[in-house]
Amino acid sequence: MRNIALKLMYNGTAYHGWQVQKNAVTVCGTLEKAIASICGGPVHLTGCGRTDAGVHAEHYIANFRTDSRIPVDRIPFAINTHTPEDIAVKEAFEVAEDFNAIGSCLKKEYTYRIYNSRFKNPFYVNRAYFYPKHLDEGFLDRAAGMFVGTHDFAAVRSVGTETKSTVRTIYYCHVTRNGDLLELKVCANGFLYNMVRAITGTVLYAAEGKFAPEDIPGILERGDRSAAGPTVPPGGLYLTRLWYEDGRLNA
């Protein structure tokens, strides 16, 4: 039996997240149906992470096992003929038997996009968070930098999937601007439920004067979710980079 890894991307607006759900359309469920139709039977697809409803992925890795002998270079084309336009498989690779898309992932990068303009832009609906009050990207970057390091991130998680520990390591967290578009990029060895969206909301709270950037380490130390900022909407969030020992799968 072969272990096949897929490199794919999707616009998550129409889906209730990645994970299969009984009564909702999900990215994983849609892909499993497409793969089953070309492999001749049901497959179980393991994704690199559980993106929430409305969240996008510019780079995503998933793997499945199959007895099908279809050549790997034909798999993307075959799957894409059975998926909607908002899901696309870019490449397929035969990987080691013990490879697991989530367990083998070394670190991930998420990007949160904010459309910072006085006037809304219809082309960024469900693609970036519209924020009309001018933001100082230098100030935002200073606040974002306060999250770097190994911390207990309970203060910036929502109640959701159970986890043994809320301690994670953030390798970088910074904000840049390109015209009216702001991007908060954060890379870590793992993320808690809604963690990036809560980090972004906390950075925006600092920009609104609710507290100083230097207060953020104390908020993390106390682990008080109510002291941090809100969870911003999902449409601005993208999974943008992944790191694996198998370099073929990296962004």
Rank of each mutant, 00 (worst) to 15 (best):
N3C: 01
I4A: 06
L6Y: 09
L6K: 03
M9I: 00
W18N: 09
V27Q: 06
V27R: 07
V27P: 03
V27Y: 10
T30K: 11
E32K: 11
E32S: 11
K33P: 01
A34R: 12
A36Q: 08
H44R: 15
H44D: 11
L45S: 06
G47A: 15
A53S: 15
G54L: 04
A57C: 03
H59W: 09
Y60I: 04
I61N: 03
A62M: 03
S68C: 15
I70Y: 04
R74F: 12
N80C: 05
A88F: 15
E91H: 12
A92C: 02
F93I: 07
E94W: 02
N100C: 13
I102E: 14
S104E: 07
E109Q: 11
R113K: 09
N116E: 00
P122G: 12
F123V: 10
A128H: 09
Y129W: 10
F130W: 12
D136S: 10
E137M: 02
E137Y: 15
G138L: 13
D141R: 07
A144E: 02
G145C: 07
G149L: 06
H151W: 15
F153H: 02
F153M: 01
T163F: 01
K164R: 13
S165I: 01
Y171S: 08
N178P: 03
G179K: 10
L181T: 03
L182S: 06
F191N: 01
M195L: 02
R197K: 05
T200F: 09
L204R: 08
A207H: 03
A207I: 08
F211C: 04
P213G: 06
P213L: 00
D215V: 10
L220T: 02
G229D: 01
T231C: 14
T231S: 13
G235L: 09
G236C: 03
L237K: 03
L242S: 14
L249E: 05
